[in-house]
Design a protein around this nucleic acid. Structure first.
Length: 294
DNA sequence: ACTATGTCCTGCGAGC
DNA sequence: TGCTCGCAGGACATAG
C-alpha cells in the first residue's frame, strides 16, 4: 500500500533512469479494463521528453515536454498495489508500458487495479479537496480563476508546524480520520497514521478539538520524522511494495504497532500490549497504555 | 460536518 | 488436502 514514503522511493529510482529520456510509444495491454484518462489525444505524447519526476502525496508525477514545446503531466495514482518498474517484462498485471527512445522501457503494474493514470495540462486540479472539485464540476468555480481554494491540498513535508496547526486545530472528529482523509494533508495512509500516532503517543480515536496547538505542533514534527525515516529506509514492503528497480523497502522492520497485534509495546518501560481495532473504517494498531485519549 | 458502509479488485490465509 | 470465505485497504459515492 504505497503511501508518501513509498511514492518518494519510487520517484528517486525513476529519476536516475528516466530523466530527459523521451517516450517513443505507449502500450495499454489490458485496454478493456485499464485506460488512462487524458485531456489530450495520446498521440500528442510521441517524442515527449520526461523533464521532471516528482511526488505529491501518494502520487507520482511526470512532467513531460511535448514535441511542440508545451508541457503536460502524467499523474500516476498507485492505489493499493500500483508499481512503476524499469525494464520489467510484462505479465498479467501490467497495465501500461512506456517505450523510450533510449530503448529502455518502464511499466505500470497493478494487481488490485485501484491505480489510475491521468494525462493532464496541469497536475494541481487533481489534488484539490473533494469539496472544491465538486464545486468546480458544477461550474460554481471558474477553472482559471486564481483562488486559494484552488491550491492543491498540501503535502505534510512541504508545510511547517504552524500551517499544520492551522489545518487541524479545533476541527471535529478523530485524529486518525483527519490525517488519512487526504483533504487536509495528502500522503498519509493507514500504516503511517498508526506509526506516527504511536510515536507521538496519541490515541487514534483522539478527538482533534481537544488537542492543544502545542500538541498538534509536536505531532507534525513526529509525523515528519517518521515519514523521513521511512524514506531513508526505502519505504515499507508489507505485501507488494517494491521500488522502481524491484527492490524491497526496509521500514517494515521498524514498525512499532502496524501488524503487531497482541505483541508487547516496544516503548521503553511500557508493558502494554498492541491492540487492533477498527477506526475510520481501517484496521488500527495502537498501545492502549501509552496512547491515551485526553 | 462528521462517521460508517459499500464498491471496486486480487491474493492470501484461516477454518472447516 | 482442498475448498470457501473473509479480509486487506486507497479513493470515492452514498447513507445516517
Amino acid at each position: 500500500m504505497p503511501e508518501l514514503p513509498e511514492a518518494e522511493t519510487i520517484v528517486r529510482g525513476l529519476r536516475i533512469h528516466l530523466l530527459n529520456h523521451s517516450v517513443q510509444s505507449m502500450e495499454f495491454p489490458k485496454a478493456r479494463f485499464f485506460r488512462p484518462q487524458s485531456e489530450y489525444p495520446l498521440e500528442h505524447f510521441r517524442g515527449a521528453y520526461i523533464r521532471n519526476i516528482f511526488r505529491h502525496g501518494k502520487s507520482v508525477i511526470f512532467e513531460l515536454e511535448l514535441s511542440h514545446g508545451q508541457h503536460a503531466f502524467m499523474v500516476v495514482r498507485l492505489g493499493m498495489t500500483g508499481q512503476l518498474l524499469i525494464e520489467r517484462p510484462a505479465d498479467a498485471h501490467t497495465h501500461a508500458i512506456f517505450h523510450l527512445n533510449s530503448k529502455k522501457s518502464f511499466s505500470f503494474r497493478d494487481q488490485r487495479q485501484f491505480g489510475r493514470i491521468f494525462f493532464v495540462k496541469d497536475w494541481r486540479p487533481l489534488f484539490l479537496t473533494a469539496k472544491t472539485k465538486r464545486l468546480r464540476s458544477e461550474g460554481a468555480l471558474e477553472p482559471g480563476r486564481q483562488s486559494s481554494s484552488l491550491q492543491p491540498v498540501p503535502d505534510p513535508l512541504e508545510i511547517d508546524g504552524e500551517r499544520f496547526v492551522q489545518l487541524f486545530y479545533k476541527r471535529r472528529g478523530m485524529i486518525k480520520s483527519a490525517v488519512m482523509s487526504q483533504q487536509l494533508i495528502m500522503g498519509v495512509g493507514n500504516i503511517y497514521a498508526d506509526e506516527s500516532l504511536f510515536a507521538a503517543r496519541i490515541h487514534p480515536r483522539q478527538q482533534l478539538h481537544r488537542l492543544s496547538k502545542l500538541r498538534l505542533r509536536e505531532y507534525h514534527a513526529v509525523l515528519v520524522k517518521v515519514l523521513k525515516e521511512a524514506i531513508t529506509l526505502g519505504g515499507s514492503s508489507i505485501s507488494d511494495f517494491v521500488d522502481a528497480t524491484n527492490s524491497l523497502g526496509e521500514f517494515q522492520f521498524e514498525h512499532k504497532v502496524y501488524g503487531r497485534k497482541g505483541k508487547p509495546c516496544l516503548r521503553r518501560g511500557c508493558r502494554g500490549t498492541i491492540r487492533r481495532i477498527v477506526a475510520a473504517g481501517r484496521g488500527t494498531h495502537f498501545c492502549p497504555k501509552c496512547q491515551r485519549k485526553v
